[in-house]
Simulated scan of single mutants.
Amino acid sequence: MGQVTTITIFKYPSFGAKFWAFLMMQFAHSHLKKVDGLQFYKLWGSGKEGFNPLPDWSTYALLQIWENEDCASHFFETSSLMEKYRSRSKEHWCLYLKNLISRGEWSGSNPFKKSKEIDENNPFVVAITRATIKTKLLYTFWKYVPVSQEQLLTNEGLIYTKGFGEVPIKQMATFSVWKSKAALDSFAYQSRTHVKAIGHTRELKWYKEELFSRFQPYRSIGTWGGKNPLPRLSNGE
C-alpha cells in the first residue's frame, strides 16, 4: 500500500491535561519533524460546537500523511510522544484513510496522493476542508459560518464532525465522517445554505489558500463519546 493519512483526535478532561495539550501545539514539532516516513503533518486545536471560532480547550487533533501504513503503525506502536498524548487524554480516536480526491493547496502544495486501493464495499467517506481566511474578511466569514452549517448537524448521513484549526480564527479546517458518498453529496450540493455559502466563497474570495479532500476510512481505532464511531472498521476491514 502507498501513501496513507491518519487523523487522531484527543479529548482531555482536566485543566492540567488541557494546558499540556495546548503547549504541545508548539513543542510537539521538534519530535514530529524527525519521525521516519512522515511526509506531512498538522497539529490542530478545535473550536466549540457548531463551528464556533471560540476555542474548545478539551479537543485537539493530529493529522499525519505517511509514506505507507507500516510507517504509521510503527509510530503509533512505539512513539513516546504518542504515548504521552494517549496517557493524558480521556479518550482518543484514530482513523486510517485512503485519499479519494484532493483539490487545492495546503502550505503551498497539495500533499495528498490519490490511492489506487479503494474498497468498493466500504461506503464510508471522510471529508477534510481547510482554508486560510483573508484577514480583512475574517468578521464577514465567521458571521456567516453558523448559517452555512445549520443543516449539517441534523443530517442523518453524518457520523461525526468538528471544526479544527492550525491558527485560531484565521486558519480553519472542517473534518466530517459520513455514512456514504451519497449522504455527503446531498449536503454539499443540495443543502440550500451550504450551496449559498459556496456562492459567497466564489463571490467574496474569502480565502488566501484552500484545499478540499475526500477519503475512504479503512481502520478505526479507539473511542469517541464512549464508543467506536465506525465499529465495522475496528479491525481494519
Rank of each mutant, 00 (worst) to 15 (best):
G2L: 03
Q3M: 05
V4Y: 01
V4I: 12
T6S: 14
T6R: 04
T6V: 09
I7T: 07
I9N: 07
I9A: 08
F10L: 11
K11S: 11
K11Q: 12
K11A: 04
Y12P: 00
Y12S: 04
Y12F: 15
P13T: 00
G16M: 13
G16H: 08
F19T: 08
W20V: 03
M25W: 01
Q26K: 13
A28Y: 02
A28K: 02
H29V: 09
H29I: 03
L32M: 15
K34F: 08
V35Q: 14
L38R: 00
Q39T: 02
Q39V: 06
F40Q: 06
K42E: 15
K42P: 03
L43G: 05
G45W: 09
G47Y: 07
G47V: 04
G50Q: 06
W57E: 00
Y60D: 07
A61G: 05
W66K: 00
W66V: 07
E67P: 00
D70G: 00
A72F: 03
S73I: 04
S73M: 08
E77V: 00
T78I: 01
S79K: 01
S80Q: 09
L81A: 06
K90E: 13
H92Q: 04
W93Y: 15
C94G: 05
R103Q: 06
E105I: 07
G108H: 03
S109D: 10
F112Q: 10
K113E: 09
E117A: 05
D119H: 04
N121V: 01
P123N: 07
P123C: 04
V126C: 08
I128T: 07
R130N: 13
A131W: 09
K134N: 12
L137M: 11
Y139A: 12
T140K: 14
W142A: 02
W142E: 10
P146A: 09
V147L: 11
V147I: 11
S148F: 11
E150T: 11
Q151K: 05
T154K: 12
T154A: 13
L158E: 13
Y160M: 14
T161W: 06
K162A: 09
K162E: 15
K162N: 11
G163M: 15
G163T: 10
F164V: 05
M172F: 06
M172L: 07
M172Q: 14
A173T: 13
F175L: 15
F175R: 02
F175W: 12
K181W: 06
K181I: 10
A183S: 15
F187C: 12
F187K: 02
A188H: 03
A188S: 14
A188C: 08
Y189G: 04
Q190A: 10
S191C: 13
R192Y: 14
T193C: 01
H194K: 04
A197R: 05
G199H: 14
G199Y: 09
R202E: 08
E203R: 08
L204C: 03
Y207R: 02
L211T: 07
F212H: 11
R214F: 06
F215L: 04
S220G: 00
I221M: 03
T223I: 01
W224F: 13
P231L: 09
S234E: 15
N235P: 00
G236W: 10
